[in-house]
Amino acid sequence: MMPDLGKYADAVLGSYAVSLGLIAALVGFSLWQGVRMRRALAVAEARTKKEPVDG
């Protein structure tokens, strides 16, 4: 059940929205960068026939 935040609702909900938004953006960006780099490296390793970096 939603707690009664009264006149402080903007401050409390704003804090949670900003923080969770920033965390979600950071996690999403880090995952996207990771996937993009893994694919690019896999293509390069296949081209040069090298062992994958993580076995």
Binding site: G34, M37, V53
Partner: peptide
């Protein structure tokens, strides 16, 4: 993110 950086370094070397 370190795993991504290591892969980026490896890609640059290749």
């Amino acid at each position: 993110r370190t795993r991504t950086e290591i892969r980026a370094r490896r890609l640059a070397a290749l």
